[in-house]
Nucleic acid binder design. Sequence first.
DNA 1: AAGCAATGGTGGTTCTTGGG
DNA 2: CCCAAGAACCACCATTGCTT
Length: 316
Amino acid sequence: MAHTYGDERIAEWLRENEYHPRSSKHGSVSCLALLDDLLYESDLFREAAEAGEIVYEEDYTVGEGELRWNVDLVLGPPTNEVETPIEGDRQIAEANPEEIWLAIDAKSVMTEHQKARRNRQRDINGFADIMYHHYPGAVAGGVLLINIADQFRSPLRDEGDITEHDNIERLVEETIEIFRTIDRSEGEIDPNVDAAATVVVDHTNLDDDHETQLVEDPPAPGENSIVNYRTFLSIIVETFEERFLIGDPPNMATLREADTLRNELNEQVVELLHYVHEVGVTMEQGEVSEDSIEDLRETLGQLEDLVDGVEQRHAE
DNA sequence: AAGCAATGGTGGTTCTTGGG
DNA sequence: CCCAAGAACCACCATTGCTT
C-alpha cells in the first residue's frame, strides 16, 4: 500500500473535521503524520525505534519558568530501563524520553494572515532558541499550516460572520516567504531551526460543497523550495540520521556546559567594557580615580579566572 | 465510570502605537 | 486620517486531579 505523506494527511483530516483555533487536534494530527513519514523515509530511524532505542512523546514540556515551552512532538532515547512495548501499528513506543534528539512544533495560520504570521514566526524562532538552550544539538523543525481559502468561518466569531480574504494569494505567498527566509542552522548546532515546512490548504470551515484541498500549485512552494513539505522531510531525516543515528551522538552535557561557560565569558566581557568606559570618562575629566582603576582590575581578574577555568576543562 | 472545577496552552481578535 | 505592525487580551479546548 502506498504511503500517504503528512501534508496530504492534514488535508484529509481537515476535509472530515472542523478546524477549531483553540484545539490542539490539528497540530497533533500533523505531528503524528510527520512521525509516520520519518519512520517511512528513514530505515535507520525505524530500526532504532523498533529496537526500543528511540521513543516519542506528544505535548512535551521543555525547561521551566520563562524558558518553558510546550513542544508538540519530541523524539529521543527512553528514560527507564524497562522497555515500553510498541502499541498499535506505529513502529515506535510512546514513552518519556531521557534526552531530546528531535523536536517538532506545528503551527497554523488559517485566517488574519497579516497579523498571525508574525506571531508564528516569533513562535518558531523562540522554540528553536529554547530547544538549543536545553537540548543543544536536538534537531528542531516547524510545520506551518497555511490556509489559502478566500472565505473562512471562524468558530470564534459570531454566527454568520464569514471572513473574506481578497488578495489571499499574495498573503499566502508573503507568509511562505517569511518562513522560507527565517534563519536555519544548516547542519550546524546553533539556536536556529533546522527546517521548516509550509503546507498550503484550501479550507473554508464552511458546511458547503467546497471540499478541502491540499494546494501544491503556486504560490505553494515547489519541490526545490526548502519550505516544501517533502524537502523539509528530507532535511530533517538527513540531519537527524547524521547527528544521532550514524556514529556517536553529540554529548549534550558537554554542549550545555560549553554554552553556560560561553555565556559567562560574554557577561564578563560586557562588564569589563563597562569599566573600561568608566575609566575612559574619568580620564577625559583629568581625574582618574583609584576606585575605577580598581574596579577594572578586579573585573579583569575575574575574566582571567574564567579563562583559566576554560583552559583546565578543555585544553588537552 | 462519571461529573466537575481548576489550569494552562493556543491562535484569533482587539487595542494601541507609529509612520506617511 | 488611514493603514500596518505589535502588544495585550480573551474565549475555548484539552487535560488533570479530585470527588462521588
